[in-house]
Computed example of a mutant assay.
Amino acid sequence: MPAGGGCVPNGRRSQVPADHPLVEVLAAVDAQSCPTRLNFHCHTHCSDGSLEPAAVADQALAMGLEHFAVTDHHSIAAYQPARAHLEERQRLGQRVPQLWSGVEISCLLEGCLVHVLALGFELHHPALAPYVRGHAVVGPGLRAGKVREAIHAAGGLALLAHPARYRRPHQQLIAAAAELGFDGAEAFYDYDLTSRWQPTPLVCDAIASQLQSLGLLRSCGTDTHGLALSGR
């Protein structure tokens, strides 16, 4: 997916094409989307998760997911094996979910270390090369604006992960991300770490409302690190 001029739904400037296929998917995200239909935040043993990429793909199949992304920290190594596994299942006649490219990147926003979800980008694009080497970058490349630029250059969407998990208020971080041209944030997240994933009341409602007021996209995900894609 090439980068180019465009805008997200409310006219906010973005380098991502307005017809990026994930925009339509994320525009429909609500509190019921995860974990049974959509999951744009999970991990494998390619970073700090417990599952192999094929196991994540199998669980996505079993849950009946429509769209998902593996977002390992600073790694895209899980994408190809997960995709190959899904393609094999599809050849056997199974209906498989859409797997999107994804990675979770550390950066500095408002002087706070945060995580950014890059989704739907061109794999192996040189702009993202410094961010997929298994560790966070140092220097100017750690700035949120630079990370956003790299994601957009690779044709992807940049979304602030779990905005209410940081030491600064989520209202401040989302507003700052919007000013930098981020495409959205993770609106629905289980901050209470319940036994079965569910969006945290009030907090997620406030985040979703702020994103809507800014015309930004909403994402959702379980942030799975354990053995079940239905929870964290």
Rank of each mutant, 00 (worst) to 15 (best):
V114H: 02
L22W: 05
I151N: 08
G49N: 00
A3W: 12
A57M: 01
R168S: 15
A28L: 12
A208Y: 07
G156K: 03
Q59C: 10
L109Y: 13
L99W: 09
H115I: 11
H85E: 04
I76L: 15
L229P: 11
H135A: 15
C204G: 08
T71D: 06
G145A: 05
D190F: 09
A57L: 02
E52A: 14
A228Q: 05
I174K: 07
Y189M: 07
T222R: 07
L109S: 06
E104M: 06
Y191V: 06
P17Y: 04
E87K: 10
V29Y: 08
Y189H: 15
H152K: 03
Q171C: 12
H74N: 09
N39Y: 09
A177I: 01
A154F: 13
Q90P: 01
H135T: 10
Y191M: 09
A175W: 14
H124C: 14
E52M: 14
Q198D: 04
R143E: 15
Q80H: 09
H115T: 14
Q172C: 03
L123P: 07
D192G: 12
H41K: 05
S209M: 05
L217V: 08
D72K: 07
C204R: 06
V70G: 04
K146G: 06
T71K: 10
H73V: 03
A54N: 03
V56W: 00
E149M: 13
V16Q: 07
I105F: 04
A185W: 02
Y189Q: 11
R89H: 00
A54L: 07
L99Y: 03
H67D: 10
R12K: 10
D30Q: 06
E52P: 01
P2I: 15
L22R: 04
F68H: 00
G111I: 07
V103W: 07
L159Y: 02
E88A: 14
L227A: 10
S209G: 07
R89S: 00
V138A: 12
T44K: 03
Y131P: 00
T71Q: 05
S33L: 06
A54F: 01
P201M: 10
H73P: 03
E149R: 15
A27C: 00
G102S: 11
A57Y: 01
Q90M: 14
G6H: 02
H125T: 05
R143V: 06
L193G: 05
H85S: 08
A55V: 15
G111F: 09
T44Y: 00
I151H: 12
A77G: 00
H135S: 14
A153V: 03
F40N: 00
A144H: 12
T71I: 09
A228G: 01
L123C: 12
T44P: 01
L227P: 04
C220K: 06
H20K: 02
H124E: 15
D48H: 13
H74D: 10
E87T: 06
V116D: 00
L61P: 07
I174W: 01
Q90E: 13
T200H: 10
S101R: 15
S230R: 11
C204W: 01
Y189E: 12
L86I: 10
A57W: 01
A154K: 08
H20Q: 03
Q32Y: 09
H74P: 04
S106T: 13
G134P: 00
Q171W: 13
S106F: 14
A153N: 04
A176N: 14
P130F: 01
V137E: 07
L159P: 06
A136E: 09
V29N: 06
L160F: 04
